[in-house]
Design a protein around this nucleic acid. Sequence first.
DNA 1: AATGAATGAGGCTTCATTCAT
DNA 2: GATGAATGAAGCCTCATTCAT
Lengths: 219, 219, 219, 219
Amino acid sequence: MHQEKDKPTGALKDLNSGSYMKGDETLKKDKPKYKQIIDAAVVVIAENGYHHSQVSKIAKQAGVADGTIYLYFKNKEDILISLFEEKMGQFVSAIKRGMEHEEDAAAQLEILIKSHFQMLADDRHLAIVTQLELRQSNKDIRLKINKVLKEYLLLVDEVLHNGAQSGVFQTDLDIRLARQMVFGTIDEVATTWVINDQKYDITNLAAGVHSLIVRGLSS
Amino acid sequence: MHQEKDKPTGALKDLNSGSYMKGDETLKKDKPKYKQIIDAAVVVIAENGYHHSQVSKIAKQAGVADGTIYLYFKNKEDILISLFEEKMGQFVSAIKRGMEHEEDAAAQLEILIKSHFQMLADDRHLAIVTQLELRQSNKDIRLKINKVLKEYLLLVDEVLHNGAQSGVFQTDLDIRLARQMVFGTIDEVATTWVINDQKYDITNLAAGVHSLIVRGLSS
Amino acid sequence: MHQEKDKPTGALKDLNSGSYMKGDETLKKDKPKYKQIIDAAVVVIAENGYHHSQVSKIAKQAGVADGTIYLYFKNKEDILISLFEEKMGQFVSAIKRGMEHEEDAAAQLEILIKSHFQMLADDRHLAIVTQLELRQSNKDIRLKINKVLKEYLLLVDEVLHNGAQSGVFQTDLDIRLARQMVFGTIDEVATTWVINDQKYDITNLAAGVHSLIVRGLSS
Amino acid sequence: MHQEKDKPTGALKDLNSGSYMKGDETLKKDKPKYKQIIDAAVVVIAENGYHHSQVSKIAKQAGVADGTIYLYFKNKEDILISLFEEKMGQFVSAIKRGMEHEEDAAAQLEILIKSHFQMLADDRHLAIVTQLELRQSNKDIRLKINKVLKEYLLLVDEVLHNGAQSGVFQTDLDIRLARQMVFGTIDEVATTWVINDQKYDITNLAAGVHSLIVRGLSS
DNA sequence: AATGAATGAGGCTTCATTCAT
DNA sequence: GATGAATGAAGCCTCATTCAT
């Protein structure tokens, strides 16, 4: 955990260098319209679906002209990737903050799961976008999204590594495989919840998911 | 376990009644060109990506005229759904066959995982299509695909139910959640493997995945 | 009037030589399937509209295979033209028969109008086809249809000529213009009736139409 | 006649509210490209025939990009309907203007016929389009065209009603039937003229047509 | 003569992006 | 910086006709 505490935001540090941004004068990202457009994109995509979310619709929702979008984003793809970066960045930061004062790997994992579910529950539009809509994007975008996702996965790896080293988890744990189980499970539970119109409280599932992951199916 | 043995293939029995098919004279599905076109679609989609797979490309790969496609499929969407039905049907059948003579739930689960990975490994085109390309289809298609997927999930449920009843798994197992873990994990492992260009042997991961699912992370 | 009586069917004499027919052995036209297909076309076009009347639909209604159509008709266009020829031929013959024993031009005109309306009233499918559907065909077909129509117009001309010579009508009548009034009026009344779903009895309008045509609007 | 004089253009007042047009800011209809495209459509349809008039051809003729068409019209159909509305509106307005200072119904009718023929003679492309090409459009379009046509027919009705009341025409005139005679005759004369490649001067026929309609065939 | 499976040309429309104002 | 009118490429599907059986 020391690692983690030593560089609490480190893992995210170059998340802001990915996409479109001209000079280093004033970052586009810090101008109000940048976030305004991203938030508009979340709403529009959640409400209309990925394939019916034209740039013009996002512009209208953001209250700007179509052309203005292109002053802040290279192209439509860039909106989506930036959206994911922006939101995922906050996501990872929040989870890290949550885990900051906990050293037990199992407990950290529970915080991670809870935070994950909580954040989805807090923004139903965003939940739809990340769990369903963004996945219909083409391979290129999904690859770039995966790059952003890597931050999150590294976080999971850290927890697993911790647990293995401290003996909380199996000492010879295949971290890569375990991470795929952890992420795969959380993601599947989240997606199922969104597909079912978020009609139950997903945060209530956190404990059960945590237990399954840690203890497995065995009796 | 008796259930399972009594109707080993039952759950799949009407998988072939889904989409496009006129009378009961000679099923379109049984004509050679039907499979020919589906196989062509798998190759074309795997090689060009979902969004660059024009009907004309599929027709050319299948060695038929564009219009011929429409003698066997209602529209482009129907090709995709039928593709998934056809392949998923074989998929589920194969897994069921594999599990037929095994009564232990944990062993059944291992067979399921192994079979799943084996089938993906056996057809690298199909693996790309199911793990990556088909997911960028629109909501309508995904809904219908989910319907087909349900057969598979029911199969998982049966195994889990078995295990819970026979005491191999936790007797108070939350089947729904457990199924989401099982499927989520398998799917994530498979997707990761495809994203990494299938460059390692996924079947080697089956044992590890099975172990993780059954025993969890605990030491 | 002698003219008229001398060659009672003359005007129709080459109506049967228009379109498709191979040798002079056995006329295609006399084989049962010829009329069978034409009648099928009338029904299909009336019920589905011109643009939704595919050859395959006509074939099915006629109880023959698609290919069989082409043993009796050169192409789809030929079905339509033949349909019009066949029906228009009967039409003109019937009107001629009706007028045969009447010498007064005004009375002849009344018979013509009455017969015209009566025949439309007798076959509601045919009425739809001739008044509405066939008019959406392309210019080529309409030109050929007009050629067939010419027989009918010649008949009108004869009556008008008669009337002018016998002093029943204006002696310096512009036959061409008068014929356009007669046909235009009859056609417009018929079309209006069909557009209104044939929901009143068009034959009741014959007297009024005749009176208007003969006496005009004047008080 | 007072009615007529009091609201001479009234019947047309909402002819411009028919199809595609968003707010009331700046009407699409008033922008130059709107008329530009409609005029292009008239020329293209007249020269190529309805079925060979692709949107791209119209765009090229109008000197705009294909996509620009869709900034002004909902779809291809909307071009045709708007075309008819626009031209028919001018048509009816012109006729009304012409009749404004004439109180005698017979004289009004003569003006109507003359104006009708004159306008067709003034634009040979438009004549082809309205008399021939537009009639092969599908039922939906024809229905909407008929709605626009109704303005014209109401105008005819007014004249006939006038005439009947003032004793110029038969006082017990069946207006509906009379209107069908008037319109049927004018339309047939116009169509015949167009089919014959407009090779004679149709305006010369106005007097004869008027005479026939008012006095009928009687000697 | 009759069949019907196979063919393949052809066009409307959407929407991300640009650029003159 | 902001605008929004204009652009133009790209693809699914229908259906008249053929021809091997």
